[in-house]
């Protein structure tokens, strides 16, 4: 008995040590970012201290004014909110259709849609640019948001379809008997039940759109419409980088993502397990 307990304790200790090492390796870059954001450029390269010798809180104020962060911050909020809303709304509608409606060739359509996940964004820059130009959407916020929605749809449909397929049909049949329309069932029954998967989708897309930069640079020209990542570019020169200001900028840019994550974290594991892995 004692031997078994010792064995269990040993396994527990080893497991925790491994987990602590993994956690440390995940947290250290964030800690380095915070610490570097308060150092001077010279100190970053010449001193190997973990904590700054002189705490330069002024780096944050400088970043906010020098890189016009306020303007870019609002732009990023607009792109993220509308982009995520568009992805969730359209992909949930499409996913419900794929899961529940009898449409000829729907499996082939689904495969084609999912296969677009394999296309890397830089590979479609030129056709996308030409298409947006034809639609007079180049250098517009709407053009960029539509690109973001388009980029997130395939994964959203893939995730939500499998989730909707798992929902008990009996509830929907009962609603049909009670006179609910197909859209009514989607809106009042299927969508509320898919909350965990939607939370996962919101987090994934918020992260993607908030951090996205390449597409914005290609689609937009007007500096006033650029997202927050454009602000970070100010500190990265052709040959040199202002690390303290860049790290302060990154810290500011990370805060909204952290907030979204903390708000929705309880749904993540549930959502992934219930939807994505079953797909």
């Amino acid at each position: 008995m004692n031997e078994a307990r010792i064995k269990k304790t040993l396994v527990n200790i080893i497991t925790h040590v491994i987990l602590l090492i993994i956690a440390f390796s995940c947290i250290f870059p964030v800690f380095w970012m915070l610490s570097s954001s308060l150092k001077s450029q010279g100190e970053i390269f010449t001193q190997m201290n973990i904590l700054p010798q002189h705490w330069n809180f002024s780096n944050y104020a400088e970043v906010w004014t020098k890189a016009e962060f306020a303007k870019y911050f609002i732009n990023s909020v607009i792109y993220t909110v509308f982009g995520v809303f568009g992805v969730v709304f359209l992909s949930s509608l499409a996913a419900y259709g794929f899961a529940r409606l009898e449409i000829p060739g729907k499996n082939i359509m689904f495969l084609i849609l999912v296969s677009t996940l394999l296309l890397p964004i830089p590979g479609v820059f030129v056709p996308l640019y030409l298409l947006l130009n034809k639609l007079h959407l180049l250098d517009t916020r709407l053009g960029l948001i539509l690109c973001y929605i388009n980029g997130g749809l395939a994964f959203g449909i893939f995730l939500l379809r499998s989730f909707f397929e798992e929902l008990p049909k009996e509830i929907e049949d009962a609603a049909l008997i009670d006179g609910a329309s197909r859209f009514g069932i989607y809106w009042r029954i299927a969508l509320p039940l898919a909350r965990p998967a939607i939370a996962t989708l919101v987090i994934f897309n918020s992260l993607t759109i908030w951090n996205e930069f390449l597409l914005a640079l290609v689609v937009l020209q007007d500096k006033a419409k650029m997202p927050i990542q454009r602000g970070l570019m100010v500190f990265q020169g052709t040959h040199m980088t202002d690390y303290p200001l860049l790290m302060a900028g990154l810290t500011i840019a990370t805060i909204p993502v952290l907030v979204v994550y903390l708000m929705m974290q309880k749904h993540i594991v549930k959502g992934i397990a219930a939807g994505a892995l079953k797909g």
Partner: peptide, 28 residues
């Protein structure tokens, strides 16, 4: 309501005669 705001073509209020695209962030 938001669509017109988002889709505004956003052409700069000032009309520029010469536009230069460059990559030299440190010289902007």
């Amino acid at each position: 309501i938001f669509l017109p705001i988002l889709s505004c073509s956003g052409k700069p209020k000032v009309k520029y005669d010469v536009v230069i695209w460059h990559w030299m962030t440190d010289r902007q």
